[in-house]
């Protein structure tokens, strides 16, 4: 069942959301959260999900304290009161 969850946005994505640092979406999984964000803020498309719908490797997505890559990735369920955080993956060579 879809619940309302707060999503914390990193600085680099806030301009796509009218400057907001926290937005609320209705979702039941992390995949829903990201698809809702892209639907509401099309500027985020391509930064969160790949064309095939998989999680973009340059973004870290957390439910509370956990990276969803160590949970069930896009299938990770979200519950009432959960906080979802997005951060840019920081990597290089």
């Amino acid at each position: 069942m879809a619940v309302a969850v707060d999503v914390r946005l990193p600085t680099v994505l806030r301009s796509q959301a009218g400057g907001q640092s926290i937005v609320t979406v209705k979702a039941s999984t992390i995949g829903d959260v990201l698809r809702e964000l892209v639907s509401e803020f099309p500027g985020m498309s391509g930064q969160l999900l790949n064309d095939d719908g998989s999680l973009h490797r340059f973004v870290n997505v957390y439910v509370n304290d956990d990276d969803v890559r160590y949970l069930e990735s896009l299938e990770t369920p979200v519950r009432e009161g959960d906080e979802v955080s997005l951060l840019p993956a920081v990597a290089g060579g």
Binding site: D65, L87, A91
Partner: peptide, 19 residues
Amino acid sequence: EAASARVFTVDSRDLLQAD
């Protein structure tokens, strides 16, 4: 997180904690 002499990935949990 990459534990490599050639590439790096900031550990995602450390990054969240720092943020």
